[in-house]
Structure formats: C-alpha cells, structure tokens
Amino acid sequence: MENIKNLLESYIPLAKSTAKMFGPNCEVVIHDLTNPQASVMFTVNHHVTGRKIGQSFDHLVKTVLQSEDFKEDYLAGYTFKTEDNRTIRSSTSLIRDSKKKVIGAFCINFDVEALNQMQQFMDTFLSTKVEVQENETTSNDDLENVEGIVDQLIQQIIQNSVHPVMKRHEKIELIRFMDEKGIFLMKGSVEKVASMLGISKVTVYSYLDEIKHKSNEGETK
C-alpha cells in the first residue's frame, strides 16, 4: 500500500526551495487532504498568512474548485485578503497518488503588499482579471473532476469523524465544519452527506438552519 505521508513529504524540498527563491514574502503550504480537518502538514514562512500545522484548508473548495479557471488540477494567480487586510496572491496544485486519487495540495501564498506600491509597473502581474479565450468552456471532464474531489473530501471528513454512538451535537459540528469549508456549495453534496451520516436530507437542512440561526444570534450580541 502506498505511503501517503512519505509521498507528501517528498514535496517538502520543493516547498523549501520555492520559499527560499522568492524570499520571506512567499509562504508554501502542503496539505494532507486525507485528513481534511487538520490538513496542514507542512508550512514554511507561515508568517505570511499565519498558517500552522494541524489547521484545516480555507480556500480549496470556495475559491479553487469553484473557479471556472480550475483546470488540470491547478489554479494560479487567485487573490484573497488576510484578516489584517493584506492582499495575498496564491496558486494551488493538487497532489494525486499512483491511483489518481487526490491526497494533497501544494499551495504558494505571496504577500503582494510591497508590490502594490509599484502598481503601474506591476499592473499585469497584479491583475485579478482572467482572460478567457474565445470558445473556451468548462468541459464535462473538468466538472466531473471537481465533483470527484469534493466527494473524496466528504468521504474523508466523515470517515475521520463518524462513530457508532455519534450524538446529535457532534453531527451538527461536523456539518458546521463542512459548511464553513464550502462543501455545500457543490450540487448534490447535501444528499451525499445525508446518506453517509445515515440521516435524511431534511435533517441536514434543519441542522444548517440551526447553525445559521446560532451564528446570527452571536453576531447580534
């Protein structure tokens, strides 16, 4: 059986050399997606976004997999803001095992705040606009690839958490985690989660409503 840990660790030299080449503003993170709830297994220059070993992924589903430009297992040049309002330019590439199953992600995060001061010169580099070639459409293969990746994440998340005497509040927390990570943005995900948890689709929606209600209560306090 292939050793996933060893395979992912084989990317560490690449992570270190990438960070060394681009300097302290470049953070590289390796995720173990067979452990989605604590996927960060290696990071260098973690001060860029504050990523720490044992944390979970943030942008994989909501930004990367949901992007029309996610093709061939990678998305390059997307941006997001940190909590202190710094702009981070990122690239994410998926890592597959010998059976083509997605087991990890290799992420590069670059703090471009210093470059923002050179806006005129760096317009091309910093542009978040994506040039779409004519007649370029998202193929069925691309959609199936994304759906397959999210299916794997759902299976792994539930496999890591479900036990025979799982209580209601534990199921709610599990669904909260998946909701925060964007799992339910994918069509059909509610049905898949309901089936794997052995509950109805209506129950999943009721848990999501309860989570939203509690979140709104917390914001108004």
Results as ranks from 00 to 15, higher is better:
24 P>C: 05
31 H>I: 03
182 G>T: 05
59 H>C: 04
100 K>Y: 14
94 L>D: 00
207 Y>L: 00
51 R>P: 02
62 K>I: 00
25 N>W: 10
91 S>Q: 12
27 E>S: 07
40 V>D: 05
84 D>S: 11
181 K>Q: 10
110 F>G: 02
97 D>R: 08
12 I>L: 05
153 L>K: 03
41 M>K: 07
4 I>C: 10
175 I>F: 12
210 E>G: 14
154 I>Y: 09
142 D>A: 13
134 E>L: 08
47 H>N: 09
206 S>V: 03
6 N>K: 15
182 G>K: 02
185 L>K: 09
181 K>W: 01
193 V>F: 09
51 R>K: 13
130 V>M: 14
217 E>D: 03
164 P>E: 10
174 L>G: 05
206 S>Y: 04
50 G>A: 00
43 T>H: 10
73 D>K: 12
218 G>Q: 06
216 N>I: 03
218 G>F: 08
53 I>V: 15
3 N>V: 01
13 P>L: 07
49 T>A: 13
30 I>Q: 08
42 F>E: 06
174 L>H: 08
165 V>R: 14
72 E>V: 08
156 Q>P: 05
189 S>W: 00
60 L>M: 10
180 E>W: 06
35 N>A: 06
2 E>V: 11
24 P>V: 04
68 E>I: 00
87 T>N: 15
52 K>P: 07
122 M>V: 08
215 S>V: 00
58 D>M: 11
134 E>T: 05
63 T>K: 14
176 R>S: 08
75 L>C: 05
167 K>P: 11
140 N>I: 01
79 T>Q: 14
206 S>F: 10
23 G>K: 03
114 A>E: 12
40 V>G: 06
135 N>T: 04
122 M>C: 15
133 Q>D: 10
219 E>Y: 10
41 M>H: 02
153 L>Y: 10
104 G>P: 09
82 T>N: 07
148 G>P: 07
1 M>Y: 08
22 F>I: 09
147 E>F: 00
102 V>F: 13
83 E>D: 15
160 N>F: 02
170 E>F: 05
30 I>D: 01
145 N>D: 08
50 G>M: 09
206 S>Q: 13
77 G>V: 02
184 F>D: 05
216 N>R: 08
186 M>W: 12
152 Q>D: 10
143 L>A: 02
216 N>A: 15
9 E>D: 03
7 L>K: 11
82 T>W: 01
133 Q>V: 05
84 D>K: 10
103 I>K: 02
27 E>R: 06
214 K>G: 00
28 V>Q: 05
3 N>T: 04
177 F>W: 07
75 L>T: 00
9 E>K: 11
118 M>Y: 14
99 K>C: 09
181 K>D: 04
110 F>H: 11
215 S>W: 02
1 M>G: 15
214 K>R: 13
115 L>A: 11
149 I>V: 13
199 I>V: 15
189 S>C: 01
66 Q>F: 12
83 E>V: 14
66 Q>E: 07
28 V>W: 04
57 F>K: 06
44 V>M: 04
102 V>H: 13
24 P>K: 14
200 S>H: 00
136 E>T: 05
146 V>W: 04
89 R>V: 05
34 T>H: 06
33 L>P: 04
